[in-house]
Design a protein around this nucleic acid. Structure first.
Lengths: 325, 325
DNA sequence: CCACGTTGATTAAACGTTTTACCAACAGGA
DNA sequence: TCCTGTTGGTAAAACGTTTAATCAACGTGG
């Protein structure tokens, strides 16, 4: 627990000189800088962030507000945010908004109480946190007005739709999880853009949609595009029970590239968010805003990446189902 | 940005009195306390954590060190830790050890630099972080020497093994993921304890083990106990290809109760960690240690919970496989 | 020789809080 | 009346850092 005063006394020099030497500001002779730095590291000196924060008015800490754990991207985003923050010598304080908009604002307030310099918010489904007293970046909500960075969900939908049409499929089912989610709607929107060359596109939602699947396939659908890997897993289980094979009878895709997609058989074709890039850009924007520089582009969409695996294949001319018929 | 000095000036009173009134220490008349509290809330006063930290030497912040994202419990633990921390008015600063023991010590150092009052560490597989300069609690590693709180992995294994023997199964396969992981070994250990009444127990590990599965079943095994839900999913996919039905021909269990277990068909029987309790106990221990009280029990095992779903069933006298044979 | 710019370092204030020591006023008991 | 204890409050220091203002010393050009 060596402090600046001890180093100063130890070397017969003033505290200001030590501070200047260590931070590189002010005017100190080169050799004095060297001697001070040496002695400081010998003593294992660690500047007190509290002292610095008090003086500078900046805590060097960002607040991260995360929704409930239904978002399976949480750990990866947090991990990469933490990495990006480390590179810039700032810390990340987490808060949990527990699925509830009220808790979300409370979480934000707790972080503000702690004096964070800025906020990273992954908002609750459908909510748009208002303007805060510190610079803020919204993560991963599609069509938000203000400073937001997000995966290009629509682009991802288009990507996977183009993949499926390139394989020759012309009768497609889109299966969404939840209509209220803006993200889900964006994904579906993108899929439709990529399906302009398709003959029929059937859009289904949720549990009910699932039940109509077998019928749709009997009517000629050869590909199912879901808006979530979890949904894709459920569809696959469902199809097996109906005696429908993936990808032989019907191609199936997910969304988000969750780890279990690799454990499925066949392994799931899906589309992945570039969480690393999202985190990097988010921190960049936020730090720029904190340093008072206005960022030119208020809205940033990070491209998604197609992950081609085994659950999609070329459209066959005669499927086993047709022979059954 | 009202501070204590402004409130003091505003009310014609000294800063010490304001501080005493707001913190409840010192001697201030009841009515003065009321007046000061009122005025403070009117002005939207928020105490500066920096000032307080500097004076008290305590930051009110705990550091959380997490391993790479292969641990799917990360978000839930973090979430509940954050909740438990909120209740005690402390913040949680996250750091990522990125799968690498060197990075782990670096992450710890970064947190110490930030002046955290204590550390919560979920260690890398196989590593045991040394004694730190601040109170520390290790989370979720089984047989660690010091202050650790963890799920009772062995107990969980025993639980699921007893479930399977209660269903009448007598020829069991245990399938582990990775022999290096202490957690995995503990789970297997527990399973064996629950299988004392079984006739044959075959212990397999990893990819190779998977390949021997079909053979084992031909030889009469009727239940497969895995040490991870992910593994169970892969096994199920594998068995389907071999024409082996779950649970009709063979019962299957996972470990950890990950979300996708509900999306599988049949839904996966597994065993769940009580992460909420783990988080609560961990924070309790840590706060006690920070406040200088020695906790009596250095090691805490939190019971796991059996989640019975559809992938396990009563042992049939004649399975479809036997009729095939 | 003087005015002056530069270099290297110091002094002191400031950030917001907590806390110890002190003080004034007052009441009660002897 | 004097001693003592209590109550309600204040003054000032302390935590560790940064930084604006100041200063001494030392050439240097005029």
């Amino acid at each position: 627990m060596a402090n600046i005063k001890q180093i100063a006394a130890d070397m017969g020099v003033s505290v200001a000189t030590v501070s200047n030497a260590l931070t590189g500001k002010g005017r100190v002779s080169a050799q004095m800088v060297a001697r001070i730095k040496l002695r400081a590291s010998e003593l294992g000196y660690r500047p007190s962030l509290a002292g610095r924060a008090l003086r500078s008015g900046q805590s060097g800490i960002l607040g991260l507000v995360m929704p409930d754990l239904t978002n399976p991207l949480f750990p990866r985003i947090a991990q990469h945010l933490s990495l990006a923050a480390d590179n810039r010598q700032v810390g990340i304080l987490i808060a949990d908004s527990r699925g509830n908009p009220d808790e979300q604002t409370q979480a934000i307030n707790r972080l503000l109480d702690r004096g964070v310099d800025g906020l990273l918010i992954v908002p609750q489904k459908g909510t748009t946190p208002g303007l805060q007293s510190v610079p803020t970046v919204i993560i991963n909500t599609a069509s938000d007005p203000d400073n937001t960075v997000s995966a290009d969900h629509a682009g991802g939908g288009k990507l996977i739709a183009e993949h499926i049409t390139a394989l020759g499929h012309r009768h497609i089912v889109i299966l969404g999880v939840d209509r209220v989610s803006e993200v889900q709607r964006d994904r579906v929107e993108g899929m439709r853009m990529g399906l302009v060359t398709a003959d029929t596109v059937l859009e289904l939602w949720g549990e009910d949609g699932m039940d109509q699947l077998a019928g749709a396939i009997k009517n000629g659908a050869t590909a199912i595009l879901t808006t979530s890997d979890l949904m894709a897993l459920r569809v696959q289980s469902h199809l097996i029970r109906c005696g429908i094979g993936v990808p032989n009878d019907v191609s199936l895709t997910g969304f988000d590239d969750l780890p279990f997609g690799l454990a499925m058989h066949p392994m799931l074709t899906t589309v992945a968010q570039d969480v690393e890039q999202i985190a990097k850009v988010a921190i960049e924007h936020l730090m720029r805003a904190i340093q008072g520089e206005q960022s030119q582009e208020k809205n940033d969409k990070i491209a998604m990446r197609l992950v081609t695996r085994d659950s999609t294949s070329l459209k066959r001319n005669t499927t086993s189902l047709e022979t059954i018929k």
